[in-house]
Amino acid sequence: MSVANTPFVRTAILTAEPPPPGERGAVAWVRRNLLATPKDILLTVLAIAALAWVVPQLIDWLFIQAVWTGSDRTFCATAVQGGIQPDGWSGACWAFVNAKLDQFIFGRYPLDERWRPTIVFILFAVLLIPLLIPSVPRKGLNAILLFAVLPIVSFFLLYGGFGLEVVDSPLWGGLLVTLVVSFVGMAVSLPFGIVLALGRRSTMPVVKMVCVTFIEVIRGIPLITVLFMASVMLPLFLPTGWNVDKLMRAVIGVSIFASAYMAEVIRGGLQAIPKGQYEGADSLGLGYWQKMRLIVLPQAIKLVIPGIVNTFIGMFKDTSLVSIISMFDLLGIVRLNFTDSNWASSVTPLTGLVFAGFIFWIFCFGMSRYSVFMERYLDTGHKR
């Protein structure tokens, strides 16, 4: 056979070449996601036009025309209204937020005692951040300090005792009340919701009936009704001479309400676990609580992390309803300051509501992003 007809066999594998320039980078992403079809092109153009019309006006009102410093409403009002703005109302009146910031955080907590809630905030951050970082060791001790020790220490720091001046809870307010109610509600609703979910799936009729009744009754009424019942009706069932603090009533109401919803979230995760997991645990000779603690619940909770965080986010926002029982959370204390005649103007209420909404968004967005992080961290399918 001649050399010309001998087939050539490559002895080395060619290195992979990069994709064409049109298939990578920002241009490819725009073509693929925004300009792929005529409908996408139309929607993209409409969205850009809407943003071009709205965003400059928002930036102008929020930042450019905004008033950042001042001692009263005259810095945000028109000259006709006795102010210093010559051409109409100013943009956002951030001077109002700056002047009332301490109240927005601490409510009516005494000025000379505000170092106490400040210490509570610091302790909360110091214990929470390591718990959220997977690589930090001693998670068990960290959890005990955060969920068992910190609430006790915080109570005596905030309320008083052991030599500290007593500060009644009606003086608490602002972000302090929002964090206290939401943190206790989250810490109580998750374990209580797990117990309710297990009880609803129990084979014991009495236990199942009690859990089903509790869940369906609480889920069938709005939170505002639960808060009214906790504030007005709960004292009626207590022995004569007993009294429950109003903030404690709000915490109990929010925790009960969230527990019912959390129970259904956990139950969804339990139903998603294959039957073989239960049978495998039984074949190992594990008892009921061993099976749930070691095999079933870790998998179920991992599956329903989005639902759990969604419930937490809803609970955090629902804390604003405590204002109906005269407890002023962040939103309530902001609205209360609208009645201050020194800051009465057309832009003050909107500025205060934008500030409160931004604070709520920061916390809710943070919980949402951490939920996504934990989903990826716990899902081994994402690991390379």
Rank of each mutant, 00 (worst) to 15 (best):
V177M: 06
T178H: 09
V180R: 06
V181K: 01
V181I: 14
F183I: 04
F183M: 07
V184F: 08
G185V: 01
G185I: 02
M186Y: 00
M186R: 04
M186H: 01
S189G: 00
S189W: 00
L190N: 00
F192R: 01
F192E: 00
F192D: 00
F192Q: 05
G193M: 02
I194T: 06
I194E: 00
I194P: 02
V195P: 00
L196P: 04
L196Q: 02
L196C: 05
L196W: 05
A197K: 04
A197R: 05
L198I: 04
L198Q: 07
G199Y: 04
R200H: 11
R200D: 11
R200A: 12
R200M: 10
R201L: 11
R201S: 12
R201W: 11
R201H: 15
S202W: 02
S202Y: 04
S202K: 00
S202D: 02
S202E: 02
T203V: 14
T203I: 11
P205I: 14
P205W: 13
P205V: 13
P205M: 11
V206N: 13
K208E: 15
K208W: 07
M209N: 15
V210E: 08
C211G: 07
V212G: 13
T213Q: 12
T213V: 12
T213Y: 08
T213G: 14
F214H: 09
F214E: 09
I215A: 10
I215M: 09
I215T: 03
E216A: 15
E216L: 10
E216I: 07
V217E: 04
V217S: 07
I218P: 11
I218M: 13
I218V: 15
R219K: 15
R219E: 15
G220E: 07
P222K: 01
P222L: 04
L223F: 04
L223N: 05
I224E: 14
V226C: 03
L227F: 07
L227E: 05
L227V: 05
L227Y: 02
F228Q: 08
F228D: 04
F228M: 14
M229S: 14
M229Y: 08
M229N: 11
S231H: 11
S231I: 04
M233W: 13
M233F: 10
M233L: 13
M233R: 10
L236F: 09
L236R: 11
F237C: 12
F237M: 12
L238G: 10
L238W: 12
P239Q: 06
G241N: 04
N243P: 09
K246P: 12
L247R: 01
M248T: 13
M248Q: 03
M248P: 06
A250Q: 08
V251H: 05
I252L: 14
I252S: 07
V254H: 03
V254I: 10
V254Q: 03
S255H: 01
S255G: 14
F257V: 07
A258T: 02
A258D: 06
A258H: 01
S259I: 01
S259Y: 00
A260Y: 05
A260V: 10
A260Q: 03
M262L: 04
A263F: 04
A263Y: 02
I266T: 00
I266P: 01
R267Q: 12
G268N: 03
G268H: 03
L270S: 00
Q271K: 13
Q271W: 09
A272H: 08
A272D: 14
A272I: 09
I273H: 05
I273Q: 05
I273T: 11
P274V: 07
P274R: 07
K275H: 15
K275N: 15
G276K: 01
Q277F: 09
